[in-house]
Design a binder for these strands. Structure first.
Lengths: 341, 341
DNA sequence: TGGCTAGTTGGAAACGATACCAGTATCCTC
DNA sequence: GAGGATACTGGTATCGTTTCCAACTAGCCA
C-alpha cells in the first residue's frame, strides 16, 4: 500500500483551486471561512486523501500536544495504574502521552528527561528513580515546560507541581495497629532512601514508636531496593536473626511477593506465625490466604490528579501546587493478636 | 528558568562564525569535517546552550525515530510486561516508544492508530481491542509503515509481522491434564471471540475433548470480557447451575481474580472443592494457597520479539514474518484428583 | 606551472504546516 | 453615492532542521 508521497495541504489547495492558507483555515476552523470554501476544501481533502502532518504543525505552532511520562518501573502495577489515570485525563484534553521508563536507573532518568525535552513535549509527569541525583536536577532546570512530580520531592526544583500520597498517615495507622495488637518487634522492609515514599515510611515508622515511648527496632529495618528479590532476601535475613520479628511491613507490592516467597520457604504461616502489612492494594493482597492488611491508596486517581495539575498550568496558566492523595489502612486477617513469646 | 527563546543551530552558527550547514554536519558527524571546525562548533554549542529540536529534524529527515505501541489494556500486568520488553529493545536501537491504550474499545483502536499515523511514527506495535472491526482495517490499510501485531490476527492485513503465543499447545496440555485427573465437567471462562487468544483457547478446548472421544461441555463455556468482573459473574453463574463444573480454566489474570473472588464468596476451596487452571503467570498464581496451575509464557520476551521484528523491517529492510512464543503448563496444587461425584 | 582530485565549507532549497498582512468584494449607513 | 466597516481570501515569511550543489583551498603529479 505504499503511496509515492503523502498528500500535503498544498496538494489540497491545488486540487481545490484555492490558497494554501485557506486550507489551513478550514482545517483549524477559523471563524472567517465561507461555507462554500469549506465544502470545496473538504471535498479536495477527501479526493486527494490528505492527512495532517502533526510534526510540521507542531514545529510551526510551537506546541506538540504531547506529554512525557517517566516512570521508574513500568512493570510495577502501581505505575501502570498511575499511567492509566494520567492517560485518560490527558486524552480528554487532546494530549498524547509518551510513556517512558527509567527502570530504576538515575542515569536513565537523565537521558529520558533530556530526550523528552528535545522532543519538545509540552509538559512532563515524572516519577524519577533517584530524587537526589545532581544530573537529574540539571536536566530538570533546563526544562522550560511545566512539570508534575509523582510522589517525589526534588529539592531545588521549586516550580513543579507535586502529587504525593499521605504515607505518613497510612504508616502511622499501620504501626499503631500492630502495636495495639501487642507487637513491638516489627520489621520494615522498604526501598531506597532516594525515594520519597521509602523515606516517609521510615520516618513515620520510627516516630510512631517514639510517640508511644518505645524504642524503634533499628535492627529490624531492611532498606534495599523495591524489587521482589530484595524483599525475599531481606525476609530470609530477618528470619535468620537472633530475634526475628513478630510482624512485618512490606513497603510495596513487589517487595510483598518477595516476602511471601521467603515466608513460604521457611514454612511460616501469615497471620498465625507472623503478622504482615503491605503497601498498595493488588489482587494478591485481597486474595491471599489469609487476606493481607494493606495501606491502600487510589493509584489511578493519583495519575488523574497529576494530569489535572499539569493541565491547569498548560491550559489554565495556573501556578504550581501540591496535592495529597489519602491513604487508608484496610485491616485483614494477616494482622491478628501477637503470638505469646 | 524561562529563557526568551531556545537557541537554534543558526545561533550556534553565528556565534561560531560558520555556516549553518557546517553545524549540521558536525552534529550528524558527517565524514567531511575538519577537527578545527568540530572544535569551534562544539564550543559554540556549549556557549549558547544549544539543544536539538527533534521536531524540525524529524520533519526534514522524514523519520521520527518513534514507534507507536497500542495496548488493549495497559493496566493489565501482561501488557505492562510486553511493553517493557518492547521498550528495552527499541531503546537500544535509539527509538522512543509512544505507549497508548485503547481500553478495550475498538473505536479507540481506530482513533489511536490514526493519531499515531498523523504523528508520523516510524512503525507500530499493535495489540488491538477488536481484530474484526472494519474501521480498524481501514486505518491500518492507510498506513505506510511497518506493523507488528501482538497475539492478534487481522485478516486482510497481509503485510504485517506477527508475534503470537502458542495458545494451542498450552490449552491442549491443560485440558489433557484435567481429563487425566478424571475431570470432564470443565468450565472455560474466557474473553471475546474478537481476540485471537480467546478464539484459540476455545477452539483447542473443544478439540481436546473431541480427540478423547468426549463431548465438549458447551454448557460450561462462558465467553465475556477479559475483566475481573466478568470472571466473577461467570463463576457465580456456573456455580449456580444444575451441574456445576469440577474444574475451571480462567483465560487471563484479570479473569482469575474474579474467579477467585467468586469461589471465596461461595466458600469453595481451590484444589479441594474445585480444580483451577489460569492463563499467564502473575504473583498471585504462584503465591495463592494452594498455588495455581498455570499456562505460562514469557511476556517480556513477546515484547522484545515484537520490537525485534519491527526493527528487522525498519533497519534491515526485511520481509514481514511470524514468530511464535511457546507456552508451558506449570502444574501446581490447584489441580488434583477429581472429587468423586 | 597547469590541471585534476580530494577535502572542506557556504548558500539556499526543501520538509509541511501556521499566521500575519494585505487586498478584494460585499454590505450598511447617512 | 461616498465612506467605512465587515467578511473572506491570497500571498508570503517563518518554525528549525537536513541535504544538495557549488565553490574554494590545498596538495599532488606530470
Amino acid at each position: 500500500m505504499a503511496r509515492r508521497r503523502d498528500a500535503t495541504m498544498e496538494d489540497v489547495a491545488n486540487h481545490a483551486g484555492v490558497a494554501l492558507s485557506s486550507v489551513s483555515r478550514v482545517l483549524n476552523d477559523h471563524p472567517d471561512v465561507s461555507d462554500r470554501m469549506k465544502q470545496r476544501v473538504m471535498g479536495a481533502i477527501a479526493d486527494v486523501g490528505y492527512e495532517p502532518n502533526l510534526l510540521a504543525s507542531s514545529l510551526r505552532r510551537g506546541s506538540t500536544k504531547t506529554i512525557g511520562f517517566l516512570a521508574s518501573d513500568i512493570s510495577n502495577p502501581l505505575f501502570a495504574e498511575i499511567a492509566l489515570g494520567a492517560e485518560r485525563r490527558l486524552d480528554e484534553a487532546e494530549y498524547t502521552m509518551v510513556l517512558t521508563n527509567s527502570e530504576g536507573s538515575g542515569e536513565r532518568d537523565e537521558e529520558m528527561i533530556r530526550l523528552l525535552r528535545w522532543r519538545r513535549t509540552d509538559g512532563l509527569i515524572l516519577s524519577v528513580s533517584d530524587e537526589r541525583r545532581a544530573g537529574t536536577l540539571v536536566e530538570l532546570a533546563r526544562l522550560d515546560v511545566p512539570v508534575v512530580l509523582i510522589d517525589r520531592d526534588v529539592k531545588g526544583l521549586d516550580d513543579a507541581s507535586v502529587v504525593t500520597s499521605d504515607h505518613a498517615r497510612g504508616m502511622r495507622s499501620a504501626v499503631d495497629h500492630l502495636i495495639e495488637l501487642g507487637h513491638t518487634d516489627i520489621a520494615l522492609i522498604s526501598g531506597p532512601r532516594q525515594l520519597r515514599p521509602a523515606r516517609e515510611r521510615l520516618r513515620v515508622f520510627r516516630r510512631a514508636f517514639r510517640d508511644q515511648q518505645l524504642e524503634p527496632p533499628e535492627h529490624l529495618l531492611r532498606i534495599g531496593s523495591f524489587s521482589a528479590q530484595s524483599g525475599e532476601q531481606a525476609t530470609l535475613d530477618l528470619l535468620a536473626s537472633d530475634r526475628p520479628p513478630t510482624a512485618m511491613i512490606a513497603g510495596g507490592n513487589l517487595l510483598l511477593t518477595g516476602v511471601l516467597r521467603a515466608l513460604r520457604r521457611r514454612k511460616l504461616t501469615v497471620g498465625r506465625d507472623i503478622a504482615l502489612v503491605s503497601c498498595d492494594e493488588v489482587p494478591l493482597t485481597e486474595l491471599h490466604s489469609p487476606p493481607i492488611t494493606v495501606i491502600a491508596r487510589d493509584a489511578v486517581h493519583m495519575g488523574d490528579l497529576a494530569a489535572e495539575l499539569l493541565l491547569e498550568r498548560l491550559v489554565g496558566d495556573a501556578e504550581p501546587r501540591r496535592a495529597v492523595v489519602p491513604t487508608s489502612l484496610i485491616v485483614r486477617d494477616s494482622t491478628k493478636k501477637a503470638r505469646r513469646r
